[in-house]
Amino acid sequence: MGYSSEELLICVIARLLEGVDHIAVGVSSPIPGSAALLQRALSDGATRVTVLNSRHLQALNDGVTELFDMAAQGRIGAFFLSGGQIDGSGNINLVGVGDYPQMKVRWSGSFGSALLYYLVPKVILFRDEHTRRTMVEKVDFISAPGTSEEGIHRPGGPHALVTNLCVFSFDKAKARFCLETIHPGHTLEEVLDNTGFEFDRPDTVPQTPVPEPERLNLLRGSLAQHVADPYPKFAARVWGV
């Protein structure tokens, strides 16, 4: 059964979300959002999903503080973060490129990362541009660090890094990524060429499993409509709904 690159990434991320009781997703994250909804459908109601600012998938009503309060209490099992730069120690940069504060390139800001990255147990880093520009040896600005010194309250942190090329896991003790699988159609050379940081890998890196037909049917059937609620443009582009 054929599949699109979006569907592959959705299925990859959904696998990482197995067993999570409450997944929160930002409003501009259609691929992670679709993955969360797929995991919810597969969980038979055990998984709850909150898509921030959506009309029907948003069960919060106490303003912007509520998401952070929930995270601090351990009420959110998984969240997604990204970065203009992500480095080999799991540090993320949402601020810019160059010397702070008058940076060469300036992005919007760190948003909730400097709390959520510390407190949400499974943070999945997602970036669909895997290049030496985004996957760097050392970020120019640490919006939130990949790991913290001993003694710092840090129940959460990076669980995996998913890109358009591959999936890395993160080893907290070593503060290093490990290449787990490479997506079909891509090679280890391509990953090495496009990654600015060093990472661990097994002797043979397996291929990322392709999406199961029943999951694709689920996505293209009832789920596409659900995805269209918070992410109408994405659902229209990928599934024509």
């Binding site: 952070f68 504060p101 060469k104 300036r106 760190s110 909730g112």
Partner: peptide
């Protein structure tokens, strides 16, 4: 991107105190 914001920060015309969402709300 917010164009005036980006231009002003890069030019040093805006003194920005960067922080994280929960810090401002708290």
């Amino acid at each position: 991107q917010a164009p005036s914001f980006v231009n002003a920060v890069k030019a040093g015309a805006l003194q920005l105190k960067d922080t994280t969402c929960p810090a401002l709300v708290s």
